[in-house]
């Protein structure tokens, strides 16, 4: 039984860090800041949660603390992504050439 839990836990760890790797890849490959933030925020959230879950299978007595770290990351990760994206947009960070539409810029243009 112990080995089965270990196996599941280990598998979750590897899956989680694979998503982290995709995040890093996205950070390097994506064409502009907003896409990079997207890649970073999503993959690190799921990746970290999977790793924490895997760790719970390996060390059940750490459960509460792992849950706390997970909840904290679940709440703060999207917030820091949003705050960063908003700050970057307000100072007019360049968007890649493929960008099709920017409603925010349009609306800001109308007001000024």
């Amino acid at each position: 039984m112990g080995t089965l839990l270990d196996f599941i836990g280990g598998l979750l760890l590897v899956t989680g860090s694979t998503f982290l790797l995709f995040g890093g890849l996205g950070l390097v490959r994506m064409p502009d800041l907003f896409n990079r933030i997207q890649a970073g925020a999503k993959t690190t959230t799921l990746g970290t949660l999977l790793i924490l879950l895997g760790m719970f299978f390996l060390q059940p007595q750490w459960g509460l603390k792992l849950l706390l770290i997970g909840l904290f990351i679940l709440f703060t990760n999207p917030i820091s992504a949003q705050v960063l994206a908003r700050a970057a947009h307000r100072v007019g960070t360049e968007k890649c050439a493929k960008t099709t539409v920017d409603r925010l810029e349009e609306d800001l243009g109308e007001k000024s």
């Binding site: 995709f22 890849l25 996205g26 490959r29 994506m30 099709t100 539409v101 609306d107």
Partner: peptide, 21 residues
């Protein structure tokens, strides 16, 4: 995450970004 992984792993990087309201 799966969709993002697919985009990141494909050589052509199929993105069509924009900001909508």
């Amino acid at each position: 995450n799966i969709r993002l992984a697919r985009i990141v792993l494909s050589p052509s990087l199929p993105v069509k970004p924009g900001i909508v309201k």
